[in-house]
Design a binder for these strands. Structure first.
Lengths: 164, 164
DNA sequence: TAAGATTGAGGTATCAATCTTT
DNA sequence: AAAGATTGATACCTCAATCTTA
Protein backbone atom coordinates (compact mmCIF):
# COMPACT_ATOMS: atom_id res chain seq x y z
CA UNK A 1 0.00 0.00 0.00
CA UNK A 2 0.89 3.64 -0.40
CA UNK A 3 2.88 2.62 -3.42
CA UNK A 4 1.56 5.05 -5.98
CA UNK A 5 3.70 8.13 -5.94
CA UNK A 6 1.44 11.16 -5.62
CA UNK A 7 4.48 13.34 -5.95
CA UNK A 8 2.79 15.33 -8.66
CA UNK A 9 -0.28 16.17 -6.64
CA UNK A 10 0.88 19.72 -6.08
CA UNK A 11 2.33 19.58 -2.57
CA UNK A 12 5.80 20.42 -3.80
CA UNK A 13 8.04 18.51 -1.37
CA UNK A 14 5.92 15.42 -0.84
CA UNK A 15 8.72 12.84 -0.54
CA UNK A 16 7.51 9.36 0.32
CA UNK A 17 10.90 7.76 -0.09
CA UNK A 18 14.56 8.72 -0.09
CA UNK A 19 16.09 11.13 2.40
CA UNK A 20 13.94 12.86 4.94
CA UNK A 21 12.85 16.26 3.69
CA UNK A 22 13.15 19.48 5.64
CA UNK A 23 9.79 19.28 7.32
CA UNK A 24 10.31 15.67 8.32
CA UNK A 25 13.70 16.56 9.76
CA UNK A 26 12.21 19.42 11.72
CA UNK A 27 9.66 17.14 13.32
CA UNK A 28 12.09 14.34 14.10
CA UNK A 29 15.12 16.34 15.19
CA UNK A 30 12.87 18.67 17.11
CA UNK A 31 11.80 15.75 19.24
CA UNK A 32 15.40 14.82 19.96
CA UNK A 33 16.41 18.40 20.68
CA UNK A 34 13.46 19.21 22.89
CA UNK A 35 13.80 16.02 24.85
CA UNK A 36 17.49 16.64 25.45
CA UNK A 37 16.98 20.23 26.56
CA UNK A 38 14.04 19.47 28.81
CA UNK A 39 15.62 16.51 30.55
CA UNK A 40 18.93 18.33 31.00
CA UNK A 41 17.32 21.39 32.48
CA UNK A 42 15.03 19.38 34.71
CA UNK A 43 17.74 17.03 35.89
CA UNK A 44 19.87 20.04 36.79
CA UNK A 45 17.01 21.58 38.76
CA UNK A 46 16.37 18.39 40.69
CA UNK A 47 20.05 17.73 41.23
CA UNK A 48 20.67 21.13 42.77
CA UNK A 49 17.48 21.34 44.80
CA UNK A 50 17.00 17.74 45.89
CA UNK A 51 20.25 15.96 45.09
CA UNK A 52 18.72 13.40 42.74
CA UNK A 53 18.68 12.91 39.00
CA UNK A 54 15.48 13.07 36.98
CA UNK A 55 15.26 9.31 36.73
CA UNK A 56 15.96 8.81 40.40
CA UNK A 57 13.25 11.30 41.21
CA UNK A 58 10.83 9.54 38.94
CA UNK A 59 11.53 6.22 40.61
CA UNK A 60 10.88 7.81 44.01
CA UNK A 61 7.72 9.49 42.83
CA UNK A 62 6.34 6.31 41.31
CA UNK A 63 6.84 4.65 44.69
CA UNK A 64 5.27 7.63 46.40
CA UNK A 65 2.20 7.54 44.16
CA UNK A 66 1.67 3.85 44.75
CA UNK A 67 -1.05 2.97 47.29
CA UNK A 68 1.37 1.09 49.53
CA UNK A 69 4.49 2.99 48.44
CA UNK A 70 6.31 -0.16 47.40
CA UNK A 71 6.74 -1.91 44.10
CA UNK A 72 8.58 -4.87 42.51
CA UNK A 73 11.85 -4.07 40.78
CA UNK A 74 10.44 -5.30 37.48
CA UNK A 75 7.54 -2.88 37.62
CA UNK A 76 9.89 0.00 38.35
CA UNK A 77 11.94 -0.99 35.35
CA UNK A 78 8.87 -0.67 33.16
CA UNK A 79 7.85 2.67 34.64
CA UNK A 80 11.24 4.34 34.69
CA UNK A 81 12.19 2.96 31.26
CA UNK A 82 15.32 1.17 32.40
CA UNK A 83 16.46 -2.43 32.08
CA UNK A 84 16.20 -4.71 35.13
CA UNK A 85 19.88 -4.36 35.83
CA UNK A 86 19.66 -0.62 35.52
CA UNK A 87 16.97 -0.59 38.18
CA UNK A 88 18.95 -2.88 40.44
CA UNK A 89 21.79 -0.39 40.35
CA UNK A 90 19.66 2.67 40.77
CA UNK A 91 18.01 1.09 43.80
CA UNK A 92 21.46 0.20 45.11
CA UNK A 93 22.36 3.87 45.02
CA UNK A 94 19.11 4.96 46.62
CA UNK A 95 19.46 2.35 49.36
CA UNK A 96 22.97 3.64 50.01
CA UNK A 97 21.46 7.09 50.57
CA UNK A 98 18.67 5.69 52.72
CA UNK A 99 15.92 6.87 50.41
CA UNK A 100 14.68 3.37 49.63
CA UNK A 101 14.81 -0.09 51.20
CA UNK A 102 14.53 -3.56 49.74
CA UNK A 103 11.95 -5.93 51.11
CA UNK A 104 11.31 -9.57 50.17
CA UNK A 105 7.77 -10.52 49.22
CA UNK A 106 6.03 -13.35 51.11
CA UNK A 107 3.96 -14.59 48.23
CA UNK A 108 6.84 -14.97 45.79
CA UNK A 109 10.41 -15.29 46.98
CA UNK A 110 11.79 -14.25 43.61
CA UNK A 111 10.42 -10.76 43.98
CA UNK A 112 11.98 -7.84 45.80
CA UNK A 113 9.97 -4.79 46.65
CA UNK A 114 11.57 -1.38 46.66
CA UNK A 115 10.06 0.52 49.58
CA UNK A 116 10.21 4.24 50.21
CA UNK A 117 11.89 5.16 53.50
CA UNK A 118 10.78 8.10 55.61
CA UNK A 119 13.63 10.11 54.15
CA UNK A 120 12.60 9.11 50.65
CA UNK A 121 9.03 10.16 51.32
CA UNK A 122 10.20 13.49 52.67
CA UNK A 123 12.40 14.06 49.65
CA UNK A 124 9.47 13.57 47.31
CA UNK A 125 7.25 15.81 49.40
CA UNK A 126 9.83 18.56 49.41
CA UNK A 127 10.69 18.23 45.72
CA UNK A 128 7.29 17.67 44.19
CA UNK A 129 6.57 21.37 43.74
CA UNK A 130 9.96 22.07 42.23
CA UNK A 131 9.35 19.24 39.83
CA UNK A 132 5.83 20.25 38.83
CA UNK A 133 6.78 23.90 38.49
CA UNK A 134 9.79 23.11 36.35
CA UNK A 135 7.87 20.80 34.04
CA UNK A 136 5.25 23.51 33.63
CA UNK A 137 7.65 26.40 33.21
CA UNK A 138 9.95 24.61 30.77
CA UNK A 139 7.35 22.69 28.84
CA UNK A 140 3.63 22.70 29.54
CA UNK A 141 3.20 26.44 29.87
CA UNK A 142 4.65 26.93 26.41
CA UNK A 143 2.01 24.82 24.72
CA UNK A 144 -0.91 26.41 22.96
CA UNK A 145 -4.51 25.64 23.95
CA UNK A 146 -4.87 22.60 21.70
CA UNK A 147 -1.29 21.40 21.82
CA UNK A 148 -1.60 19.31 24.97
CA UNK A 149 -4.44 17.29 23.50
CA UNK A 150 -2.60 16.94 20.21
CA UNK A 151 0.54 15.68 21.93
CA UNK A 152 -1.42 13.18 24.02
CA UNK A 153 -2.95 11.82 20.86
CA UNK A 154 0.44 11.56 19.19
CA UNK A 155 2.03 9.68 22.10
CA UNK A 156 -0.97 7.40 22.12
CA UNK A 157 -0.77 6.50 18.47
CA UNK A 158 2.93 5.80 18.87
CA UNK A 159 2.15 3.47 21.77
CA UNK A 160 -0.47 1.57 19.83
CA UNK A 161 1.67 0.73 16.85
CA UNK A 162 4.21 -0.58 19.33
CA UNK A 163 2.51 -3.93 19.63
CA UNK A 164 1.02 -4.20 16.14
CA UNK B 1 0.67 37.65 34.36
CA UNK B 2 -1.45 34.50 34.45
CA UNK B 3 -1.78 35.07 38.15
CA UNK B 4 -5.50 35.00 38.58
CA UNK B 5 -6.67 31.51 39.33
CA UNK B 6 -9.49 30.61 36.98
CA UNK B 7 -9.89 27.35 38.82
CA UNK B 8 -13.62 27.86 39.06
CA UNK B 9 -14.19 28.41 35.38
CA UNK B 10 -15.69 24.99 34.95
CA UNK B 11 -12.81 22.91 33.59
CA UNK B 12 -12.87 20.53 36.55
CA UNK B 13 -9.21 19.57 36.96
CA UNK B 14 -7.61 22.88 36.07
CA UNK B 15 -4.63 22.73 38.46
CA UNK B 16 -2.25 25.64 38.08
CA UNK B 17 -0.12 24.63 41.04
CA UNK B 18 0.66 21.56 43.13
CA UNK B 19 1.28 18.14 41.63
CA UNK B 20 0.92 17.56 37.93
CA UNK B 21 -2.56 16.33 37.08
CA UNK B 22 -3.32 13.33 34.91
CA UNK B 23 -3.41 15.17 31.64
CA UNK B 24 -0.18 16.98 32.36
CA UNK B 25 1.48 13.71 33.26
CA UNK B 26 0.27 12.12 30.06
CA UNK B 27 1.81 14.88 27.98
CA UNK B 28 5.10 14.95 29.84
CA UNK B 29 5.66 11.25 30.42
CA UNK B 30 4.48 10.55 26.91
CA UNK B 31 7.36 12.60 25.62
CA UNK B 32 9.83 10.64 27.71
CA UNK B 33 8.33 7.29 26.76
CA UNK B 34 8.07 8.02 23.07
CA UNK B 35 11.57 9.39 22.88
CA UNK B 36 12.97 6.34 24.63
CA UNK B 37 11.12 3.87 22.42
CA UNK B 38 11.92 5.64 19.18
CA UNK B 39 15.61 6.10 19.88
CA UNK B 40 15.99 2.53 21.12
CA UNK B 41 14.30 1.06 18.09
CA UNK B 42 16.17 3.28 15.69
CA UNK B 43 19.53 2.72 17.31
CA UNK B 44 18.94 -1.02 17.11
CA UNK B 45 18.10 -0.77 13.42
CA UNK B 46 21.19 1.26 12.63
CA UNK B 47 23.40 -0.89 14.80
CA UNK B 48 22.38 -4.10 13.07
CA UNK B 49 22.31 -2.72 9.53
CA UNK B 50 25.21 -0.27 9.56
CA UNK B 51 27.14 -0.97 12.76
CA UNK B 52 26.73 2.50 14.23
CA UNK B 53 24.62 3.97 17.00
CA UNK B 54 21.98 6.59 16.34
CA UNK B 55 24.20 9.40 17.54
CA UNK B 56 27.17 8.17 15.56
CA UNK B 57 24.99 8.02 12.48
CA UNK B 58 23.76 11.52 13.08
CA UNK B 59 27.29 12.82 13.38
CA UNK B 60 28.19 11.16 10.09
CA UNK B 61 25.08 12.45 8.37
CA UNK B 62 25.66 16.00 9.56
CA UNK B 63 29.11 15.81 8.03
CA UNK B 64 27.65 14.28 4.88
CA UNK B 65 25.09 17.06 4.52
CA UNK B 66 27.69 19.77 4.92
CA UNK B 67 28.84 21.41 1.67
CA UNK B 68 32.46 20.43 2.24
CA UNK B 69 31.73 17.40 4.41
CA UNK B 70 33.83 18.66 7.28
CA UNK B 71 33.03 20.56 10.43
CA UNK B 72 34.66 21.85 13.65
CA UNK B 73 34.28 19.64 16.70
CA UNK B 74 32.40 22.38 18.51
CA UNK B 75 29.78 22.62 15.80
CA UNK B 76 29.28 18.87 15.86
CA UNK B 77 28.78 19.07 19.61
CA UNK B 78 25.98 21.53 19.07
CA UNK B 79 24.33 19.51 16.33
CA UNK B 80 24.59 16.08 17.94
CA UNK B 81 23.65 17.42 21.37
CA UNK B 82 26.78 16.22 23.14
CA UNK B 83 29.37 18.01 25.23
CA UNK B 84 32.73 18.86 23.65
CA UNK B 85 34.40 15.95 25.40
CA UNK B 86 31.65 13.62 24.29
CA UNK B 87 32.30 14.61 20.70
CA UNK B 88 36.05 14.19 21.11
CA UNK B 89 35.48 10.62 22.20
CA UNK B 90 32.91 9.81 19.58
CA UNK B 91 35.25 11.11 16.88
CA UNK B 92 38.04 9.04 18.45
CA UNK B 93 35.94 5.93 17.91
CA UNK B 94 34.97 6.88 14.36
CA UNK B 95 38.58 7.64 13.49
CA UNK B 96 39.51 4.22 14.86
CA UNK B 97 37.04 2.69 12.42
CA UNK B 98 38.24 4.86 9.55
CA UNK B 99 34.90 6.57 9.07
CA UNK B 100 36.21 10.03 9.93
CA UNK B 101 39.54 11.86 10.00
CA UNK B 102 40.77 14.84 11.95
CA UNK B 103 42.22 17.79 10.08
CA UNK B 104 43.75 20.97 11.51
CA UNK B 105 42.41 24.26 10.23
CA UNK B 106 44.82 26.80 8.72
CA UNK B 107 42.98 29.90 9.79
CA UNK B 108 42.74 28.96 13.47
CA UNK B 109 45.10 26.47 15.02
CA UNK B 110 42.76 25.81 17.92
CA UNK B 111 40.18 24.20 15.68
CA UNK B 112 40.05 20.64 14.45
CA UNK B 113 37.81 19.64 11.60
CA UNK B 114 36.20 16.23 11.54
CA UNK B 115 36.25 15.07 7.92
CA UNK B 116 34.27 12.23 6.39
CA UNK B 117 36.43 9.50 4.86
CA UNK B 118 35.41 7.59 1.75
CA UNK B 119 34.27 4.75 3.97
CA UNK B 120 32.27 7.16 6.08
CA UNK B 121 30.62 8.62 3.02
CA UNK B 122 29.75 5.15 1.78
CA UNK B 123 28.30 4.20 5.12
CA UNK B 124 25.97 7.17 5.06
CA UNK B 125 24.96 6.48 1.47
CA UNK B 126 24.18 2.88 2.26
CA UNK B 127 22.35 3.63 5.51
CA UNK B 128 20.40 6.73 4.59
CA UNK B 129 17.40 4.80 3.30
CA UNK B 130 17.28 2.53 6.33
CA UNK B 131 17.36 5.61 8.49
CA UNK B 132 14.67 7.52 6.63
CA UNK B 133 12.43 4.49 6.36
CA UNK B 134 12.74 3.69 10.03
CA UNK B 135 12.02 7.23 11.13
CA UNK B 136 8.94 7.22 8.91
CA UNK B 137 7.72 3.78 9.86
CA UNK B 138 8.21 4.23 13.59
CA UNK B 139 7.22 7.85 13.88
CA UNK B 140 6.22 10.09 11.00
CA UNK B 141 3.79 7.69 9.35
CA UNK B 142 1.81 7.44 12.55
CA UNK B 143 1.08 11.14 12.69
CA UNK B 144 -2.25 12.51 11.58
CA UNK B 145 -2.52 15.12 8.81
CA UNK B 146 -2.08 18.13 11.09
CA UNK B 147 0.20 16.56 13.67
CA UNK B 148 3.47 17.23 11.90
CA UNK B 149 2.75 20.94 11.71
CA UNK B 150 1.59 20.98 15.32
CA UNK B 151 4.75 19.25 16.50
CA UNK B 152 6.97 21.62 14.55
CA UNK B 153 5.24 24.53 16.19
CA UNK B 154 5.66 22.98 19.62
CA UNK B 155 9.39 22.33 19.17
CA UNK B 156 9.74 25.87 17.92
CA UNK B 157 8.07 27.47 20.89
CA UNK B 158 10.24 25.39 23.20
CA UNK B 159 13.33 26.62 21.37
CA UNK B 160 12.32 30.23 21.63
CA UNK B 161 11.81 30.32 25.38
CA UNK B 162 15.25 28.78 25.66
CA UNK B 163 17.02 32.11 25.31
CA UNK B 164 14.37 34.35 26.88
C1' DT C 1 11.79 -24.11 31.74
C1' DA C 2 10.73 -19.62 32.77
C1' DA C 3 10.53 -15.42 35.71
C1' DG C 4 12.69 -12.04 38.79
C1' DA C 5 16.73 -10.08 40.28
C1' DT C 6 21.56 -9.54 40.46
C1' DT C 7 26.54 -9.45 38.96
C1' DG C 8 30.73 -8.89 35.91
C1' DA C 9 32.42 -6.83 31.96
C1' DG C 10 32.36 -3.22 28.90
C1' DG C 11 30.68 1.05 26.48
C1' DT C 12 29.62 5.85 26.47
C1' DA C 13 28.47 9.97 28.68
C1' DT C 14 29.71 13.91 31.92
C1' DC C 15 32.55 17.23 34.88
C1' DA C 16 36.57 19.53 36.07
C1' DA C 17 41.15 20.37 34.96
C1' DT C 18 44.56 21.21 31.41
C1' DC C 19 46.90 22.57 27.13
C1' DT C 20 47.29 25.44 23.15
C1' DT C 21 46.16 29.27 20.51
C1' DT C 22 43.69 33.62 19.99
C1' DA D 1 41.33 36.24 29.73
C1' DA D 2 38.62 33.40 26.61
C1' DA D 3 37.81 29.76 23.05
C1' DG D 4 38.52 25.11 21.16
C1' DA D 5 39.81 20.65 22.10
C1' DT D 6 41.42 17.03 24.89
C1' DT D 7 42.31 14.07 29.11
C1' DG D 8 41.63 11.78 33.73
C1' DA D 9 38.38 10.48 36.86
C1' DT D 10 34.00 8.94 37.48
C1' DA D 11 28.94 7.86 36.91
C1' DC D 12 25.48 5.33 34.85
C1' DC D 13 23.63 2.14 31.65
C1' DT D 14 23.43 -2.16 28.92
C1' DC D 15 24.30 -7.05 27.61
C1' DA D 16 25.14 -11.66 28.73
C1' DA D 17 25.66 -14.86 32.24
C1' DT D 18 24.16 -16.51 36.72
C1' DC D 19 21.48 -17.56 40.84
C1' DT D 20 17.21 -18.60 43.10
C1' DT D 21 12.53 -19.71 43.20
C1' DA D 22 8.10 -20.97 40.78
Amino acid sequence: MAFYSDDESGTGTASRSGQLDDQELQVWRGLLRSHARLTNALSGQLQSEAGVSLQEYQLLQHLFDHPIQRMPMSELARLVLLTPSGITRMVDRLVGRNLVNRQPVRSDARVQHAVLTDAGRELVISAVDTYANSVRRLFLDKLGPDDAVALSKVWNSLDIGDEG
